[in-house]
Structures are given as structure tokens and as C-alpha cells.
Design a binder for these strands. Sequence first.
DNA 1: AAGGAGAGCAACCGCAGATTC
DNA 2: AGAATCTGCGGTTGCTCTCCT
Length: 335
Amino acid sequence: MGRSGRSEKKKKQNNNSNMVGLGVGVKKGPWTPEEDRKLLSYIQQYGHGSWRSLPAKAGLKRCGKSCRLRWTNYLRPDIKRGKFSLEEERTIIQLHALLGNRWSTIAAHLPRRTDNEIKNHWNSHIKKRMTKMGIDPMTHKPKSGTQLLGSNLNHMAQWEAARLEAEARLVQKPKYYPNPPPYLVSHSTTTQEVHKTPAMVPPPYLPCLDVLKVWQGTLWSNYSINNESLQSLISTSNVSENISLTTPTTMPELNHVESKSSCDQGVTTKQNDEDKIQMGPFEEFEYPDDETFINGDPLRSPDFWEEFVDLLDGGWNSLTSNLAMIASPPASPVF
DNA sequence: AAGGAGAGCAACCGCAGATTC
DNA sequence: AGAATCTGCGGTTGCTCTCCT
């Protein structure tokens, strides 16, 4: 996203808009529990509506922007905090390889994690670890200079990255859902109240990252136990149903290890709505053999990074062969 | 025990796209 | 159509905590 083309006029506009509410008496810095309580209580009761006008209504001496940030990154009830699981880290690395620093897009595929948290985790943990192991965290290539992706695979990567972004947009689009989350319903006494408490909640289930999953399946098959024989899979994700993403419809089915993984949450291989898996928290995630898995954690294994490049290529080769089974994708992604 | 260094993370800032007027 | 405003994103800063000397 190029920002160099920004006009002076725009700069003036933005400066003005940013200055709104930042006059004398507007507090900055860490939020106090009392401020949190006020903000939470107001949003639970009325929804956030216009962020700009919220602080005054909620009795906060903050700018709307600060309130929004506090809500989206900390107070929102559907946020998971704490340590990132190995699976989450993998997903971040894989998505970062495809998408780069598009944290919001990456976050859209990691349920209950915020872009800020993912960004922080990347910068303070994963990036350093990769650097330490001789992997360039930006290109995901070993610093020795091995080419990860061939030119056509590179094209595939671009294509897939665009698809992932489209999925993310779709996931993010319905900010307000007609059915309020339980925590709001419990606080609401009337239907009217329910309707005026539009808080952000996760969709009932998230889109399936078909291509990513296949890639993941290949990538981690050496480490995640017992890859079942590959079977065809019809994706019934929201995305596949609702928009044309030129997603391959025939994909190898992932074994039960992957079926519990982050990108699989909320998706199913069955058509019946009743069978759709509700999005579950990461806490429920379990490796079949945790100890073995952690001991052999590829991220911490010296051998892993040596094989990383080959495995990535293998993943893309797997993708390519699967894609060959269906109609050719468009020359360039159009969403 | 003191203080310096580094890590981790919450919050801020500036920019740009989207929406409204 | 264009200006004004709102919202969201990514980069960065700075505070706090922990560890080390």
C-alpha cells in the first residue's frame, strides 16, 4: 500500500480530523480500570455507534480513537489473550509468507486474536527467532539465498494472497450481527436493547483456507502425526458459497490433527448446516500427542529450517497438482 | 541492593480508503 | 463532484517488568 502519493490537502484534512477531540483535557496513556469500566458499560448498553461522540457520552476524557483502540484490542469480550499456541504461530508464519505485514488480514484468520497482538507477537518473538535461525523474516527465505518459490509458484502465492485477503474482508465485513452475543443478551432486557447493542462478535463459522490447509498439510506432514490418505474435499465454507473465489473444490482432506487447527475452526467438510462446527476457542486445541509434538516442535528444531524451503516448495507443488484437477484459475485474481 | 539492558506489550501517530454531506 | 469526516491499518514509541551484572 503506497502512501507516498498522499496530497498536502489530504494531510491537512487528516490532521484536522485527528485533532478533533484532542484538545485540552483529553487524556492519553494507559487506561485505568475505571475508564475501562465506563467504556465497557457504555458499549454494552448502547453499542459504540460513532466513536467520535462516544467519549463524551460515556463520560470519558479520551478521544474516540483511543476508545476504539482500547475496545478492539483489549475490552472486546471475544478476544483471546495470552500465549500463542504453536498452531497459531505456524498459521501466522504461513500467512505472513503469503501476505506480508497485513496484520488485519492475518488476524481475520486467527479467531479471537487482534491484529495488534499478532503484530506484537511477530515483532517480539517470531521475527527474532527466525532471524536467529538464519531465516529472513520478511522474505521467509534462508539468508543463504535459496529461492523459495519459482516464478509460477510466486504467481500462485500472489493469487492465494489475494484470495486470503478477500476472505478476510468477507469475515470482517459484517461488523454487526443480527443475533447479539450471549454476553450482551444477558445484559439486555428488551428486544429494543438488543438491537441497539451492536457489538462485534465473531461470525458463526470462519471461512476455510483450503489452499493454506493443503499447503499446511504438506508442510507439517513430517511433524503432525499420520497424515491420512488424501481424500477429496468439498469446501462448504461461507466464502465458497457466497462469493466466487475460484477456490479449488477438490482438495485433500486433512487428518484429524489439522482438522482441529486454527484455520479449520468453524468449517466442515459436510454440507449439512447442522454439521457445521461452531467456532471454538483455541484453548480447546489439542495435539494428539502433545509432549512428542512439543519436543519435536519444528519451530524450535534446528532441522526444521533446513527443510523449510523444500517443504514450502512441496506445499506449492501439492497445490499446483490439485489445482490442475480443476479448471485453471484466472490469469490474475479479480475480486 | 542498585542500576543498566533487553523484552514484551499497550497505546499512540500518521496515513489512506470509505463514507457522508 | 468534491470536501469533510469517519474508520481502520501498519509502524512506532515509550512504559513496565524481568533478568543480569
